[in-house]
Nucleic acid binder design. Structure first.
Lengths: 163, 163
DNA sequence: CCAAATCCCACGAAAACCCATTGTATCCCT
DNA sequence: AGGGATACAATGGGTTTTCGTGGGATTTGG
């Protein structure tokens, strides 16, 4: 599987009082080139304290990928349990939200909680998907490469935030 | 993987007040022969104080390579972290910029900072990719062969710059 | 009937677009 | 071979469009 439209780049946008955020235009471009929808799928990232996001068309691909991973893993009695867990995580634990004509979504409260988002949202392209971070959490995570933190700091400076 | 169209040659172009630079025509030719896009991908060079640039098609190749690597690896928790770190560096730390009908890009402020670019940009073809330098930094780097510095000096003289 | 979500409009800054000029290399004709 | 015409590359500047964002109005659902 080789997707031709990849999410890349970074941006720092505000979460306003109503809980709205603009999805950066360059990410929306990829979403709309992959499929015709103007919606994104949100989920908790399993490895990091941030959200993962992608387009609905990719959700199916992502599921297939998890399946393949599962087949390589254990084939014992608990594999059925693992299968169920993965499906639950892949579908029940996600939310699909449309963005409006100006490219904004309303972050669902549960996702805002799961992603620990405050008033700034850092968008990071990761190829097939993209991530949404609370920039403070990214700066505090020791698994994040320094170069990436530099990007976060740059985006914060750009915006005039003290740091 | 053997690309048939390679980046080669050198040129020195101006960065204007708006932050725009012309991509040399001979490099654009390669980009458009590799794919149909009129965009380039910019990233910080890991070894030298300059930028590295390539076409989106080449970015997709790099992505495919990462994916194959990931599928071969163990399916553990810490492998997922490594996978994400690689994807973050490959995509979040890069920016894709289109060039207009006259072949110019707007250098993103972050890249201008990372590449330490001032008002002159030296383009150097390196085969699969090309580099963009602040010529002063290249002349001051003791890891750069003298012959290459001569090229930089020649380009500077050509332009009438004192040096 | 109230709260929350959606829609709508407005604004400032930045980016994309368009046109015009200059210089240089190329071609063609005599 | 010279000389003029031509095409394209690089660059400057002005104009239009888009993007992110705030705030109000309207609709929806419990």
């Amino acid at each position: 599987m080789a997707l031709e439209h990849l999410f890349q780049g970074s941006a720092l946008n505000a979460v306003d009082a109503k809980g709205r955020v603009s999805i950066p235009a360059f990410l929306r471009g990829v979403i709309e080139r992959r499929g015709a929808t103007r919606t994104i799928v949100l989920a908790k990232n399993e490895a990091f304290p941030c959200l993962i996001a992608y387009d609905p068309a990719y959700a199916a691909l992502r599921h297939a990928k998890l399946e393949r991973l599962a087949e390589k893993e254990e084939t014992g009695a608990d594999s059925a349990v693992g299968y169920q867990q993965r499906n639950l995580m892949a579908f029940a634990a996600t939310e699909e939200v449309p963005y409006d004509s100006s490219g904004r979504i309303l972050v669902p409260p549960m996702m805002r909680l799961k992603g620990e988002l405050a008033d700034l949202a850092l968008f990071l392209g990761t190829g097939e998907t993209f991530q949404i971070w609370n920039p403070e959490l990214l700066l505090g995570d020791d698994r994040i490469p320094e170069d990436l933190k530099d990007i976060a700091r740059f985006r914060l400076n750009e915006r005039g935030a003290a740091r």
